[in-house]
């Protein structure tokens, strides 16, 4: 057991620096690998105590795909288009929901304040969440992609690994959006309502229902600015092309860039000092 150590001899007796406007001057610092993995492990442990949530996260997308396959029983081409798009959309929605609720809980239960009063970097916390939910997204997407391709006859021209890559990036984007949005929700009711507010417009405009070029020019412009459009576009690129196209690379970079940007915005909403 450590005794109360005498005061650091190098520091002056009284740091008369006014504690004045310390607006999270805390060094965000570089990522600490141990703290990040500890956080990811903790998030996964929490989920493990909640098998029903895991089951819902993993199997509901599969179920939807099966449903969709037989909804479009007569037109397998339509299933190809919508199915591939959905492979990108599911991880985004699931991770958005799970992350927004999980971080909201973290904020309201006081554990966030406790963690930020400890030597945990904001980046560690966010990366921990991203890692944990990213891992889940890989499992979810692998199952959904495998099911679609081998059992439901989804006709993918490109590599299924690319599908998986896009799905993972979409999951990250979902995590990032969820984290960001949770800062503006005061309750779980509000957090859930952010789903229609943030996700639905993107869903309508991403080209799932009708090609984006067929929309009103104003809406096409809006959809150009929404990240989900590129997520869906990337999926369609893999669907129709054998190789990585430049459009695919552009799409992937945009989705990844958006995810990082929103993660950074989310980090800014984590405050060590709050009113």
């Amino acid at each position: 057991m450590s005794q109360t150590s005498p005061m650091d001899p190098t520091s002056p007796m009284s740091t008369t620096a006014p504690t004045a406007p310390v607006t999270s001057a805390a060094p965000t610092g570089a990522l600490n690998a141990s703290r990040t993995t500890a956080t990811a492990a903790r998030v996964l442990r929490q989920l493990r105590h909640d098998p029903r949530t895991i089951a819902l996260m993993i199997f509901v997308p599969c179920l939807m795909l099966v449903l969709l396959r037989y909804v479009f029983d007569a037109s397998p081409r339509t299933f190809d288009d919508i199915g591939a798009s959905l492979l990108g959309i599911f991880p985004l929605i699931t991770m958005f929901l799970v992350t927004s609720i999980a971080t909201l809980r973290e904020r309201t239960s006081g554990t966030l304040e406790r963690l930020l009063a400890m030597p945990l970097g904001k980046a560690d916390l966010i990366a921990g969440y991203a890692l944990a939910f990213g891992a889940l997204a890989v499992v979810q997407s692998a199952l959904a992609t495998g099911l679609a391709e081998w059992f439901l006859g989804l006709d993918v021209t490109g590599s299924p690994w690319l599908l998986l890559l896009v799905a993972l990036l979409d999951a990250l984007l979902g995590t990032a959006l969820g984290l960001f949005v949770s800062a503006f929700a005061a309750s779980e009711f509000q957090a859930v309502q952010f789903m229609p507010a943030v996700i639905f417009p993107q869903l309508l405009l991403c080209g799932l229902f009708t090609p984006r070029s067929d929309m009103h020019p104003a809406l096409t412009a809006v959809s150009d600015a929404l990240p989900m459009s590129y997520a869906v576009d990337a999926m369609n690129q893999v669907l129709h092309h054998t190789d990585m196209t430049t459009t695919f690379v552009r799409d992937v970079l945009i989705v990844a860039g958006c995810a990082l940007l929103v993660l950074a915005l989310g980090a800014a909403t984590l405050r060590r000092r709050t009113a």
Binding site: S11, T15, V22
Partner: peptide, 27 residues
């Protein structure tokens, strides 16, 4: 304020020889 999670603090507040909320205090 002492543990460094309160915003809107002015004046002097020293904790274990550092200004309250100093990263060195977190552990």
């Amino acid at each position: 304020a002492i543990v460094g999670t309160q915003a809107g603090v002015t004046g002097t507040l020293d904790v274990l020889g550092h200004a309250a909320g100093h990263p060195a205090l977190r552990s």
